[in-house]
Computed example of a mutant assay.
Amino acid sequence: MTIEQATVAETAAITGAAELGGAVRWRGRATVAKYWADDDLRRATPYEVLEGDNLLLTAGATLLLNRLCGIAGTALDETNARVCVGDGTAAAAAGQTDLQGTNKFRKLVDAAPTVSGNQAFFWATFDTSEANFDWEEAGLANAAAGATLVNRFVQSFGTKTSSLQWTLTITVTAS
């Protein structure tokens, strides 16, 4: 089978990105910026920044196409978009509908997502009391519970503790 003959889910599984009709390519990137939370000076600059690539999930592709066509679906806006983290290490698979770990945390985005050119940016800050566990997976969802998980990243970002504040940014590029 060639890329041109593959479905969105098959293409995503083959390439780690989704190509729709050979014209649109989806790319997702998760960036975790880690900050110390104990004083203002150390909070000003991240002590580490990690990045990972994603898999567009079938349910996420369906949501995006439905929204594009004006069909019902919850928007990824400032009242619904959630940046998600978990401790699951199972390989990403197109048919997954949620994070795979035991520990999961969905955080409402800090502000309205922004679009610049062909990229959309979603970000959330996880304070010292939030998501204190091994961050092994991340994603973008459209509600706190019962949501559509759009994409899933499997990447060891490290262990967040109560002395740390981390910001997770998910960048989606269509080209």
Rank of each mutant, 00 (worst) to 15 (best):
L99N: 07
L56T: 15
T114P: 00
F153G: 03
N132Q: 14
A124L: 07
P46F: 06
T102H: 07
Q155E: 12
A61D: 03
T148S: 11
D98I: 13
E130Y: 09
K34C: 07
L68R: 11
A72R: 08
P113S: 11
L63Q: 12
A174S: 05
A111C: 03
T148G: 10
L20D: 08
W36Q: 15
T125N: 07
A124Y: 07
Y35S: 07
N151Q: 10
G95H: 07
R82G: 08
C84M: 08
A120D: 01
E136Y: 05
A91P: 00
W135Y: 09
L64D: 03
R43M: 09
Q96G: 08
G21D: 10
S129F: 03
L99D: 05
G73A: 12
E19W: 01
L56V: 14
F157S: 14
E19Q: 12
D39C: 07
A59K: 04
A92W: 02
P46V: 09
A9D: 09
V8P: 12
G60W: 00
W36P: 12
A93E: 10
A17Y: 00
R106S: 12
V150R: 05
L41H: 12
V8K: 13
A9W: 01
C84L: 04
C84H: 02
R25Q: 05
P46W: 06
A91G: 12
T58W: 00
A145D: 13
V32C: 05
F105A: 14
A112E: 10
K107M: 11
N142W: 02
G21T: 07
T167G: 03
A93D: 09
E4A: 15
D87P: 02
D98T: 15
W135N: 13
G158C: 00
A124H: 08
A72V: 06
F122P: 06
S163K: 13
R82L: 12
T173N: 09
G139V: 08
L41G: 13
V150N: 04
A144W: 00
A174L: 10
S175Q: 12
G158R: 01
S162Y: 12
G117W: 00
A145H: 03
A92C: 06
E51H: 09
D40T: 11
N132F: 10
G16N: 05
